[in-house]
Design a binder for these strands. Structure first.
Length: 457
DNA sequence: TCTGGGGTCCTAGGACCC
DNA sequence: TCTGGGGTCCTAGGACCC
């Protein structure tokens, strides 16, 4: 078995460039939600030293006078471009595992009877993707997924590979690993990399020469698997898990919030989105967790981060049931936060009110909803603890109808009222889950909205 | 002023069972 | 004197990925 890892080059930036060729050859960065920080960079942006994760507001301070194009993220566009690329790959090699929005593993059978030039085949595939979608991709081929990842990095880095690098022989493998920093290995993150570096392990080859037992001791079996994969022993399985164990929707707020109304609106929006994701994968949840935290960058403010979970009387997937539970969990969170504050002030020896030191409310910067205990919707047993079956059925139908309307008229056509009310105290504007995200620099929905389609004159 | 979002896996330790 | 042994489940925390 051979693995070919197909990886889009600078995915988000490349998507933007397909529709705005003026960005070609320029330093381009794509920003996270709320235009918070840099999540994708063009080669030119990397070359001038813009680091990943750089807060947007520091960009002009750190790189004054440079021409840098900063764009808000447009996930609708990236998702649609990704779908197009994956469809081409699927047609070329039916056994494919889509690993992320910009990566897929192709499983290639090696037949001794039909020898094949895999490198040439992949070069042609990369060229086809480029021609049909405008997206540049690089391909790495090897006997394990971890080595295919290494190979794809070489394919990206050196034009001589013509977008495709095949690590075939043991000599090629050792040569490649000797040139590959251990910190860049798939599965070795910042923490382990720092420790390895301190121990004098600099390259992936150095890492493979450590004794297996010591790797397992310090990095558990996960690290041992990476070690084996670098020795060309295939042992990382990628399971298609159509049903997720937990589903999470969370956001940072553009401004810090403390008003209950605004929090309820935000949490209702997160909960409704979780319920929608549940229905999309045909499952139901038994637990709803709300978590919230203050702004860790504002060290002078009281810091708190907490979560509370509510168990549902029976598995649910309707907006109404999930939102109700989420509001309960939110109330629990706020109650816990309030107790924390009053405990703090009880420690003071004077009466805070008389000193003008009334405890300020916490300023929340981020919150989210997690639904867990997920079960397939077909395996549900009715429970006498649950709401009446007739009501349950009505709520299910209501959500199903809403899903159909939104599928036809766009995601924002029909929204839950609980996620729409209230105003943002900071701006005075109506606050909803969707419009609470800032994206001042977003490109048009070129491929998914007829109003944004490009005209040719 | 302004610092992302959504997941998975593994382990240790405690509670609990017989 | 001598204080079992094996199992499951849950949770928190840490590490990783894109």
């Amino acid at each position: 078995m051979l693995y070919a890892l197909v990886d889009c080059d600078n995915c988000y930036v490349s998507c933007e460039r397909v529709f705005n060729p003026g960005l070609e050859g320029k330093a381009v960065v794509v920003l996270s939600n709320n235009d918070g920080c840099v999540v994708a960079r063009s080669q030119e942006a990397k070359a001038i030293g813009i680091p990943e994760g750089l807060p947007f507001f520091q960009l002009s301070e750190r790189f004054p006078g440079q021409e840098i194009h900063a764009l808000s993220s447009n996930y609708t566009l990236y998702g649609d471009m990704s779908r197009r690329v994956m469809n081409i790959l699927r047609a070329a090699a039916p056994d494919i595992f889509v690993y992320s929005i910009d990566e897929a593993f192709l499983m290639l059978d090696e037949s001794p009877y039909m020898p094949m030039d895999y490198k040439a085949w992949c070069e042609a595939l990369a060229a086809k993707v480029r021609r049909w979608t405008g997206m540049p991709v690089s391909i790495g081929i090897a006997r394990t997924k971890t080595l295919a990842k290494v190979a794809s990095k070489f394919a990206k880095r050196y034009p001589g590979f013509h977008k495709c690098c095949f690590i075939q022989t043991d000599e090629q493998r050792e040569k490649a690993l000797s040139l590959f920093p251990v910190a860049d290995v798939w599965g070795i993150g910042r923490r382990h990399a720092a420790r390895l570096l301190a121990a004098g392990v600099r390259t992936a080859l150095d890492f493979t020469r450590l004794p297996a037992a010591s790797v397992q001791r310090s990095m558990t079996v996960t690290g041992l698997r990476t070690w084996m994969e670098l020795h060309a022993r295939d042992c990382i399985a990628l399971d298609n898990l159509p049903r997720k164990q937990t589903i999470c929707t969370s956001r940072s707020f553009p401004h810090m919030l403390s008003a209950l109304d605004a929090l309820k609106v935000a949490v209702a929006g997160f909960a409704a989105r979780c319920a929608q994701k549940l229905r999309q994968q045909k499952s139901m949840a038994q637990m709803v967790t709300v978590f919230m935290s203050t702004n860790p960058f504002r060290e002078e403010l009281d810091q708190l981060s907490l979560s509370r979970t509510v168990c549902l009387p029976a598995p649910a997937q309707s907006d109404a049931e999930i939102i109700t539970a989420a509001h309960e969990a939110l109330a629990d969170c706020l109650e816990a936060a309030r107790r924390r504050l009053s405990a703090d002030y009880a420690e003071l020896e004077y009466e805070p009110q008389t000193m003008g030191l009334r405890p300020a409310d916490h300023q929340w910067k981020r919150a989210g909803v997690i639904v867990g205990g997920i079960v397939p919707e077909t395996e549900i047993q009715t429970s006498f603890l649950d709401i009446p079956p007739v009501l349950k059925q009505r709520l299910q139908q209501l959500s199903a109808v809403a899903d159909r309307i939104n599928a036809r008229f766009g995601d924002e056509a029909l929204q839950v009222a609980a996620a729409l009310r209230a105003t943002d105290p900071a701006t005075g504007k109506a606050l909803t889950f969707r419009n609470s995200i800032l994206h001042d620099r977003r490109s048009p929905f070129y491929t998914t909205d007829i109003r944004d389609i490009i005209g040719v004159e």
